[in-house]
Amino acid sequence: MMSGFGTIAMYLAMSVIGVGAMFLMSRALGPFRPTPTKATTYECGVPLLAAGHNRYSIKYYLVAVLFLIFDIETVLIYPLGVRYSSMAHNSWALFFEIFIFVAILLAGLVYAIKRGAIDWD
C-alpha cells in the first residue's frame, strides 16, 4: 500500500500536468501577432499616464507585518489544539498559559488599532 504522502505527491503531479497542459495548449492554439500598440500597458483609452511601479501606501506593508505576528500566533497554538481535549483533564494550567499568551498579543492588536494602523483614509 502507498503512504498517504505518496498519493498527495501524485495529486500534485496531476495538478502540474493539468495546469501546465492548459497553459501550453493556449500557447499552441492561440495566434501570436504582436504589434507595438497592442503591447502597450493598459490605460483607460488615453496614452500611458503613470508607470506601474510607483509609490504606494505604507499601510499595505503595515498589514503584512501585523499578519506575520498573528499568523505565527495561530501556528503556535495549532499543535496544542490536537492534544488539548486529552490534556485538559489534568489542570487549568494549560488553559491559563494559552490565555496569557493570547492576551499579550491581543494587547498588541489593541495598541495597533489605537495607533491607527488599520485605518485607511
Binding site: F32, K38, A39
Partner: peptide, 11 residues
Amino acid sequence: LFTKEEVLPKK
C-alpha cells in the same frame, strides 16, 4: 479562451 491571442505587455 484557448484560441485567443496572448498579448504580452512591453513593460
